[in-house]
């Protein structure tokens, strides 16, 4: 089957590849670019573990073909910290114990990123609604909500986030 050339900007650097059209974005990121911070949980579009930011929006990378993302900008969990400095959202999850096993965490963090871009000052209910597509089997969500609140507060004070 014919392969297609694709060019993606991943965490700020340009990556070129040759993919079969059926290659899912999550497999391209993990298997070809080695960005294994993007997890595969359910593989059936339910759990959000595979969430990445594509062209400024959170998407489930198990439900996007790499060819669909051609020409686009992708940010994975590896692209969030700048110069060894945790992003405020990462800091929030650290400070507020927003993770236990950490499996859901990259997806949680990137969904939070999407939320705070759209709504910098979310209520608790809005946070829960925004994380609806991310499942966590450990924390019971309570601390995740606190982590997001921590990040929102920190980001309101701090200058705008890099994207």
């Amino acid at each position: 089957m014919a392969t297609h050339p694709i060019t993606l900007t991943v965490n700020g650097s340009q990556r070129q590849g040759q993919v079969e059209p059926r290659r899912l974005l999550v497999h391209y990121l993990r298997d070809e670019l080695g960005l294994t911070g993007t997890h595969i949980g359910c593989e059936t579009s339910q759990c959000g573990a595979c969430t990445v930011i594509l062209n400024g929006q959170a998407v489930k990378s198990c439900t996007v073909f790499a060819v669909q993302a051609d020409g686009g900008q992708v940010m994975t969990i590896e692209g969030l910290a700048q110069d060894g400095q945790l992003h405020p959202i990462q800091e929030g999850f650290w400070e507020e114990h927003g993770l236990q096993c950490g499996f859901c965490t990259p997806g949680m963090i990137l969904s939070t990123y999407d939320l705070l871009l759209k709504n910098p000052d979310p209520s608790e209910q809005e946070i829960r609604h925004a994380l609806h597509g991310n499942l966590c089997r450990c924390t019971g969500y309570q601390h995740i909500v606190k982590s997001v609140q921590y990040a929102a507060n920190k980001m309101k004070g701090a200058p705008a986030v890099a994207d």
Binding site: G48, K60, T63, L115, H129, H132, G133
Partner: peptide, 12 residues
């Protein structure tokens, strides 16, 4: 729109 799936589903 707000009750369809979740934010990632709604983004695509």
């Amino acid at each position: 729109a707000t009750v369809i799936g979740d934010p990632m589903v709604r983004n695509l």
